[in-house]
């Protein structure tokens, strides 16, 4: 009798192990462990046995039932895993992706957004102003009188007002620098001042790889009761590292703009050649990136601030230069070229 039970067990185990699907496994379970399964049928012989045999038989049958149940559970999880693997294998991971149809932002937008964000951290707000500007705001309010030699570096586009000659010719121009916004903003407010102004400027220049007649700049200025040259150095350092990475190397030099005193120029070690010298940095190893300085007392006076009480600094970032430096673009003109083969890279 016991032999019969063992036979059932062996048959069941071999069948369980050979199943390929959970459905097959369920069939086997019903066949052996179901209400009218083989084990139960065998148990029906129980009353025919002697009490001693009965006890042994019952115990064995229970053991076998437990063994088979365990075998079925094991087989079930094995099959599940197999199926999982099968599903995975059915994906060819080398299939090329299909990108979502999301467009690209122009690199100058990205640079402006990043920069506005960095300055926001320092408490600056962004302003916007006219590109069609007067000679007063663009030059004279900035301590640059007519026929000042420094105007040479900012060759100007004049605008035509032939139909209504109400203004002095040459009085209205396309702004050559964002600095004109210093006076426009400050004459309408009181210190403390922390302002940045991104925008497009125009210069009458023949176009080449590093010069355009339209390009993008950011002017920034800060006025308060006690502003130090070291604050300017710290701000330039913080901002450029936030924009271009902690590892950049900077150096400062003296320069002259009529609207700052002392004047500061900021150079960054060439990101392309690392300072050895290449065509990108005109072999100097350094690129001029952020002219700045302490605001000239005359400029403060022009906007109605008392230079004995207030002082401050101003700076300028050339976005076109910043972007070309950041992405190692050899030609400024790439930035006004609407070719998607360029824009899709950003």
């Amino acid at each position: 009798m016991i032999e019969e039970l063992l036979q059932i067990k062996n048959d069941a185990i071999s069948l369980i192990l050979s199943t390929q699907t959970t459905e097959q496994l369920e069939e086997i379970r019903i066949q052996f462990l179901g209400r009218s399964g083989k084990l139960n049928i065998a148990m029906k012989q129980l009353p025919k046995l002697t009490p001693e045999e009965r006890a042994r038989f019952g115990k064995t049958a229970n053991e076998i039932k437990n063994i088979l149940e365990e075998a079925i559970i094991n087989q079930k999880s094995k099959l599940k895993n197999q199926n999982k693997n099968k599903e995975k294998l059915s994906i060819d991971f080398t299939t090329p992706s299909i990108p979502p149809k999301i467009g690209h932002l122009h690199p100058i937008t990205q640079a402006i957004t990043d920069t506005v964000e960095v300055f926001k951290m320092l408490g600056y707000q962004a302003a916007d102003g006219p590109e069609i500007e007067t000679d007063y705001y663009n030059f004279e309010a900035l301590n640059i009188p007519k026929d000042h030699p420094s105007r040479d570096t900012q060759m100007t586009f004049y605008l035509d007002d032939k139909e209504v000659q109400t203004n002095t010719p040459g009085e209205i121009i396309l702004r050559t620098q964002m600095s004109g916004m210093q006076a426009r903003v400050m004459e309408k407010m009181e210190p403390p001042v922390r302002v940045i102004v991104p925008g497009k400027v125009y210069r009458y220049e023949q176009v080449d790889a590093s010069h355009g007649f339209e390009f993008w700049q950011l002017e920034g200025f800060l006025v308060d009761k006690h502003v130090r040259l070291t604050d300017l150095f710290g701000t330039l350092d913080y901002v450029l590292k936030a924009l271009l990475g902690k590892n950049i190397e900077l150096k400062f030099a003296t320069t002259n703009f009529p609207f700052v005193e002392p004047g500061v120029d900021t150079y960054i070690k060439c990101t392309v050649c690392g300072g050895i010298g290449c065509s990108f940095c005109k072999n100097s190893g350094w690129s001029e990136i952020m002219p700045a300085g302490m605001i000239h007392p005359n400029v403060l006076r022009n906007v109605g601030f008392d230079p004995k009480v207030y002082n401050g600094f101003a700076f300028c970032i050339g976005f076109s230069r910043l972007v070309t430096l950041k992405y190692q673009m050899s030609d400024l003109r790439l930035l006004s070229n609407p070719d998607l083969r360029i824009i899709n890279q950003f």
Partner: peptide, 12 residues
Amino acid sequence: NFPKTLPTGQIP
């Protein structure tokens, strides 16, 4: 040779 600091004044 200058140290670097950040402005200490009030934020408008």
